[in-house]
């Protein structure tokens, strides 16, 4: 029983990180129908910024999150208004797939130039402490990561459902033409959405950085995880990302514990295939799909 509880706990912690890492990806996919293959690199940029904050300024990586989010918000907004929008205008949404893939390659190599190819690791002061609850062992870093993830996802939900920005983002996602007729500057909203999504990707990077060593080639891994979370949970809503992420975390740990540590990826893709066959919109469906 203890083992089941420990595995459940480990799965929830891992899932929380996956949820946060996927929230931005889900938002962009839900609002703009753009599969953003740059997502993983934004996650890593967040991790590198948090590493820099700790390494050069001595700032705790979790406290650096607001700064990381601000930088990536600006970068995401500019990226959408220039490169992504241009690709969509000139060709199709498919072009954005290719463009984001290309930009990810370029950014990955720029990261190598800026930080070197060596893996980095963020070690906060509480990195090696743990909490014992009876027979259960809780790694403080991972618990902090889970708390930060849940807090940030709640913040994203607040932004989307309780602010004017969120209202126009949701309106644009549901009917961009109608939103435009109502006076919404749709292009600006797309930029805002990309900015918000990038900011949350960066925050996820800061959280991931305290949990795992990271290096530029890891970007593909985080894009893939985000894709899996979106397929599982559904597109566009923080709740979908949260549910998908937690589910993915639980699939990972329970498979590793009770089937074998070699099989989490195999099980993840098996569940993805089943989900696409049975419920292609994911568990919570598309947050904006009903009005389209």
């Amino acid at each position: 029983m203890t083992l089941v509880l420990q595995t459940l706990l480990d799965g929830l912690v891992l899932g929380g990180v996956f949820s946060l890492a996927a929230a931005g990806f889900s938002l962009i996919f839900g609002v703009m129908n753009v599969v953003n293959l740059t997502h993983g690199i934004f996650v890593l940029i967040g991790a590198y910024l948090a590493w820099s904050a700790q390494h050069f300024l001595g700032v705790d990586p979790l406290l650096a999150i607001p700064g990381v989010m601000a930088v990536l918000f600006a970068a995401g907004y500019a990226y959408q208004r220039t490169i992504i929008q241009s690709a969509v205008d000139r060709s199709s949404l498919l072009a954005s797939l290719l463009v984001t893939f290309g930009v990810a390659l370029v950014l990955r190599n720029l990261l190598v130039l800026a930080f070197g190819p060596d893996f980095k690791s963020i070690t906060p002061s509480y990195a090696f402490t743990n909490l014992k609850l009876g027979a259960l062992t809780l790694d403080i870093v991972r618990i902090s990561a889970l708390a930060a993830s849940l807090g940030l996802i709640a913040l994203l939900a607040f932004v989307l459902y309780r602010t004017d920005w969120g209202r126009v983002i949701r309106a644009t996602a549901q009917q961009d033409f109608a939103a435009g007729l109502c006076g919404v500057n749709v292009r600006h909203v797309y930029g805002l959405t990309f900015g918000v999504a990038s900011a949350f990707a960066g925050a996820a990077g800061a959280v991931i950085g305290i949990v795992l060593p990271f290096a530029p080639p890891d970007e593909g891994h985080w894009t893939m995880k985000a894709f899996a979370v979106v397929v599982l949970g559904g597109v566009g809503s923080p709740a979908g990302a949260l549910l998908g992420g937690l589910l993915l975390g639980l699939i990972n740990t329970f498979t590793a514990q009770f089937i074998g540590p070699a099989f989490p990826n195999a099980m993840m893709f098996l569940v993805l295939v089943l989900m696409l066959l049975v419920r292609p919109h994911g568990l919570l469906g598309s947050a904006f799909g009903g009005s389209r």
Binding site: D10, T137, H221, A256, P261, N265
Partner: peptide
């Protein structure tokens, strides 16, 4: 013997077994 995927993000299940 614990076989893991080539890229790993978590080894908590292995460590649970090691502690037990």
């Amino acid at each position: 013997r614990y076989q893991l995927p080539e890229t790993i993000t978590d080894v908590s299940s292995v460590l649970n077994s090691l502690r037990a």
